[in-house]
Amino acid sequence: MHPFVLALCGGALIGLAATFLLLFNGRVAGVSGIAGGLVGGAEGRPWRLAFVLGMVGGGLLLKVLAPGVFGSEGLYRSPVLLVGAGLLVGYGTRMANGCTSGHGVCGLSRGSVRSLAATLTFMATGAGTVFLVRHLGGAR
């Protein structure tokens, strides 16, 4: 199948999962908010933990059925880069109260201007960072 069609179908599945969580749990499917609540000691540990474990479980299914979706191993150079990036993603998404799912999918679906501002901002700094690393830094 064409990558655009796969992307559209995958996106539809993501939207469906978000609606499922809203229908049964009354919650917004923001991954950083769900996981951050576990770390920060928010209420609702069981459903939060179940969602994150469900994601890992889905990952296991993908690993068996379509291991190619994880890309090629050994793409990365240094653990220092991964740790730095991980800290930025963890800290930044909590500071902004949302990430690609909470702001990018759920917030935009709601028509939230706040989420639109967040999404445009992380897209812009994400693109800027890739530009710096790939085109000026010389490293890939």
């Binding site: 991954v31 950083s32 996981a35 994150v52 994601m55 890992v56 889905g58 990952g59 993908l62 990365y76 880069l81 991964l82 730095g84 990036a85 991980g86 800290l87 930025l88 993603v89 963890g90 800290y91 930044g92 998404t93 909590r94 500071m95 902004a96 109260n97 990430c99 690609t100 799912s101 702001h103 706040r114 501002a117 967040a118 999404t119 901002t121 992380f122 897209m123 812009a124 700094t125 994400g126 693109a127 800027g128 960072t129 890739v130 690393v133």
Partner: peptide
């Protein structure tokens, strides 16, 4: 909101991971 999103985007660009795909 803007500062947090800016930091997140940098980490996202550096790694190619946002929280959902990372857990997966």
């Amino acid at each position: 909101l803007l500062a947090g999103s800016a930091l997140f985007g940098m980490g996202w660009g550096l790694s190619g991971y946002c929280p959902g795909p990372a857990f997966t």
